[in-house]
Amino acid sequence: MLWVTWRQHRAELLACVLLLACVAVPLLITGTAMHAEYTADGVAACVANPAGTGCGQLVTQFLDRHSEWGNRFIWVALLPALAGVFVGAPLLAREFEQGTWRLAFTQSVTRTRWLVTRLIAVGAGLAALALACSALFTWWRAPLDAIDGRMRTTAFVIAAPSLVAVTLFAFAVGVLGGALLRRTIAAMGATLAVYLAVRLPMEEAVRPYLLTPLVRITDPGVTADPGWRPEHDWVVADGWIDATGHRLSDREETAIVREVYGGHEAVYGAGTPIERYLADHGLRHYAEYHPGSSFLTMQLVESAVFLGLAAALLAAALWIVRRRTA
């Protein structure tokens, strides 16, 4: 059974490894250079001791040079879709499409063992690949993460628990899609659609509230610039709050900005006039945020959600295959 699984999926494994190698080479080259720069330019020293002279400028220059590429890792959020579309979806769909399921289901191996063996072996392979990707990306981004923390989307989606769990989820979507649709191309398309339909709202709307965010209320910023320091908090909502604890709606905020700037609502950011207005009217800033220390907890919660979904989908696929008749 293991040999069969290997023989059926070795081409996919080879393609994945080649793809990983193609990505790894440029990342290793640029990453090594950036890591060297991070130490040599004194950015590392600034992260360790933010009060050092010129740290703000030094860090800003470093981020200017590297965060553009670093932020492109956001596309890693779509990487698991490849596992779902090209590995998960064909796993059963191809058997049904090419009629080989009749061959497979009439050998001396029960359907349960046949499918479970394949799911475990292929799933383990994908998990290992996801882990390798995660290690590579996380290593590359380490200097940026030391400055910005790991809670924000780009740093979060490349972390190992999340990437592995989401990869297995995408795989499960593909497997179930193949069991239901029995056509490879249809299953691939459906897998991509379902993956995006779950992943995007999950990252945009659900993850910020997987844990209850902390709330920080600060006085209007009439004080001087406190200087640069690493910012590991992930702010998921912010605005203004009045003395009664009422959070101002967008419309109320816009009205104030209009009032202060005489109708030019295009003025962006908290200029001093706004801050003065806030102070005069008893308004203060609030921010809902997740501290950098919540990283591991949130990783585990999100992974548990995706692994739970994956388990449910794979169980459904197994149920279908056990009941599947001509």
């Binding site: 023989r7 059926q8 081409a11 090419q98 009629g99 080989t100 009749r102 061959l103 009439t106 050998q107 001396s108 191996v109 029960t110 359907r111 349960t112 063992r113 056990r322």
Partner: peptide, 22 residues
């Protein structure tokens, strides 16, 4: 649904399917 039961039967389906690429 048991290996012993499956082992008793050989089946050749209508289009005699074989794995592509094998």
């Amino acid at each position: 649904d048991s290996p012993a039961g499956l082992a008793e039967v050989g089946f050749v389906a209508q289009d005699h399917p074989l794995y592509r690429g094998f």
